[in-house]
């Protein structure tokens, strides 16, 4: 099953609505609470990163019997040094974003910790694509 959700940069009031909807689906198909939680954490952080750092993005959710694959493709500034961005505490968040309580530099490390497979590609000036997979067993 495939679903596509759209996310607008800067729209903090709706940040998290995709992960909420994905959560509901995972509960309906009986995925264990631990895996639902993992997936919600990873997706929530990735979704908020689009809102906080990019201009807009599409989230494609591919729900299969034994796993969920989520691709977050955004139009935005891109990440120049992915390894560095992955470090705990590294953040380029603006003051405005920090005021909203984001910008601790924990998002990407959390996404890594809560996904079974993670692949990030990025092109400076164009955008970033994050692909994550979580298995249900």
């Amino acid at each position: 099953m495939n679903f596509v959700y759209h996310v607008e940069g800067g729209d903090f009031t709706n940040a998290g609505s995709t992960s909420s909807q994905v959560k509901r689906m995972l509960k309906k198909i009986g995925v264990s609470p631990e895996i639902v939680k993992k997936t919600v954490v990873a997706l929530y952080e990735a979704e908020v990163n689009i809102v906080a750092h990019a201009y807009r993005g599409d989230i494609t959710v591919d729900l299969e019997e034994d796993h969920i694959k989520i691709v977050l493709a955004d139009e935005g500034p891109g990440i120049p040094d992915i390894d560095r961005a992955m470090q705990k505490g590294y953040s380029t968040a603006s003051q405005k974003v920090r005021e909203m309580g984001f910008g601790a530099g924990m998002g990407l490390p959390n996404i890594k910790n809560n996904s079974d497979s993670l692949n990030i590609t990025s092109e400076v000036g164009k955008g970033t694509t994050i692909e994550l997979i979580n298995y249900f067993q």
């Binding site: 509960k27 309906k28 009986g30 729900l63 019997e65």
Partner: peptide, 20 residues
């Protein structure tokens, strides 16, 4: 223990079909 009321079937594949 969790006892989700939302689960649509004990079998994941069947639950997906029902959800859809």
């Amino acid at each position: 223990d969790p006892r989700s009321m939302d689960k649509m079937d004990d079998n994941v594949a069947a639950a997906m079909q029902k959800m859809k």
